[in-house]
Design a protein around this nucleic acid. Structure first.
Lengths: 323, 323
DNA sequence: AATGTGAGTCGAAACGTTTCGATGAAACCG
DNA sequence: CGGTTTCATCGAAACGTTTCGACTCACATT
């Protein structure tokens, strides 16, 4: 590989001058710079990131950690992250899986945005303690080197419950995510509060935020739901799973069984009947997270932000006429 | 940051011994190794990837380049790639956008898998010429450092046409992808061949592999298609776009207008009517690509592989009874 | 008792940068 | 014209590893 040293030799200058020239330092004369750039070009020089990183102690790369590269769910979020990052002169890499946690302590990346439950609080705190800057999207963590930007889960869940309520539903099930999911727990809490306020009984069924678990939950609810029931799936994925189940029965969604989800994933729009759900700007979520992280890396102060949500009505929830 | 040097000092041994111990070399005595590991643990030592890379000239990270982090489309592919890579001791990072091309020449990654039309042939060849190992998934490129694993596009497109044919359709449109898309061109070629064989006239409409372009294509086809027509969208994304258009008209898909796609993305299964399409194992695709890349990195020889396809029937294509 | 062997350890160079402080020459000043 | 300032360039150290060759013993071999 051709290095700065080769350029120096060929251009008849010192190594340091080449470095200055390449980095656009004003110390070097326009004439020498041109000569050096020409030689670099000719030799097809490419900087060695490892060497640069070793010296400068930064990579200008930040990592986004996702549970499973995130399927459909994250498209817009990624877009939001990438736009901001690029515009600030950083690159993005997307990572998944325990193995790649090492990028953070080993300095392959300058900082991380985390939306990945498999990254434990403990591990995150350990790295924060080492001075790594982190933004989390799926939990709250109290450390000067960690910030979060969270959805307004409570508002969302309340919106969903109100919708069911106003459509006349009183027999309501809620299907949760994994018990260690922050989002699931926040949403569930709001459901409970709503139930209490309205003196309503809500039956809880445990799910895992996956299609399969949604299907299973439907199977469990089905026998006892009688002729009609409403279900609040704490994410869309599970709601879609329910569709899969009811398609196999003679119950029709939006008529006998009423479903609302959370997240407004792409599928929600195409499934039929259209899934009622809670929407929020994933792109903004990503953008805010990136902005926060960059501020942290620059030693600026940041304040926690919140992503607002809105209801998306859908024919998956029909109204109960007489009540 | 604590380095190997600090460990050496504290453990009362030389730097080299620490390095050997940490890397499990048999040259160092069991007793010293234990002591060194203990000290490393105590000091919370973490290796510095940049330094290691600088010396060893490898990172054990490979990059997967996708056009736009790929939305729904790539989930399984990513899974396939990751599994193989991890199992072979490599890590995966997912990249998108021109900026991150630098990872390849700058040695941030050992090799790349590319499914991203914005990565030009010219650029790829340049890096290959520098000795970088690359596997491409969306083109053929002739260079000793580049291999490809491709879909059997021709078989797929032929399958699709046969399906339309056997369902009695004779008035057929084909909606293409971008004109520089290898996959689109291969598929189109097979369509043309089929048409010729059956003395069939197929009307071509240009698309861009996006939902929007599919919707636009539908809009163009609509006036001239008369009471019934069949459309082969060269990918599912565009087919879904068509659904969006026809939903606004009084034509119903699978009855007046018949659509088949290509790729079998997740949405295809949930849209109604179910989209007929061409399926293939994205996971296997990713797995094969990774295996090839690793072999190349190890200096082993590889041979080109091909991913087989199959037809997935769907109610988006109805049969034309009397003909 | 002299020689050879090998296991464990060490010192130093190298990887390719960045950057501090030094050097020398040219330009400026009174 | 001596002295100071400015400017472009340079040399060397440093970043944290890996790894080659050298060294030192203890022990086995003759």
């Amino acid at each position: 590989m051709v290095s700065i040293k080769d350029i120096a030799k060929k251009a008849g200058v010192s190594i340091s001058t080449v470095s200055y020239a390449l980095n656009g330092s004003p110390k070097v004369t326009e004439e020498t710079r041109r000569r050096i750039l020409a030689v670099a070009e000719e030799l097809k020089y490419v900087p060695n990131a490892a060497a640069r990183t070793l010296k400068k102690r930064e990579t200008k790369v930040i990592g986004l950690y996702l549970t499973d590269f995130g399927g459909a769910f994250y498209g817009d979020l990624l877009q939001g992250v990438k736009e901001v990052l690029n515009q600030k002169g950083y690159d993005l890499i997307v990572c998944s899986g325990k193995r790649s946690h090492r990028f953070l302590p080993e300095r392959t990346i300058d900082g991380a945005i985390v939306l990945d439950a498999t990254f434990s609080d403990k591990e995150l705190l350990k790295y924060a303690e080492m001075g790594k800057k982190i933004v989390v999207l799926d939990r709250e963590l109290d450390h000067p080197n960690i910030n979060h930007v969270l959805l307004d889960n409570k508002a969302g869940a309340t919106l969903a419950m109100e919708y069911l309520w106003e459509m006349g539903h009183r027999r309501i099930f809620v299907v949760t995510g994994p018990s260690d999911s922050y989002d699931s727990n926040q949403r569930l809490k709001a459901v409970r509060q709503f139930a209490e306020r309205h003196n309503l009984e809500v039956t809880q069924v445990d799910g895992l935020f996956t299609k399969e678990s949604g299907e299973l939950a439907a199977e469990r609810i089905f026998p006892e739901c009688g002729e009609t029931a409403a279900v609040f799936c704490l994410n869309d994925e599970m709601a879609i799973g329910m569709y899969n189940f009811f398609r196999k029965t003679d119950l029709v969604v939006g008529r006998h069984i009423h479903i609302i989800g959370f997240d407004n994933i792409e599928l929600a729009e195409y499934v039929s009947p259209r899934l009622a759900t809670i929407d929020y700007s994933k792109r903004k979520w990503g953008a805010l997270a990136s902005e926060q992280l960059i501020k942290m890396l620059h030693g600026q102060s940041v304040e926690h932000e919140r992503i607002y949500v809105r209801l998306v009505p859908g024919d998956s929830v029909g109204s109960l006429p007489n009540r």
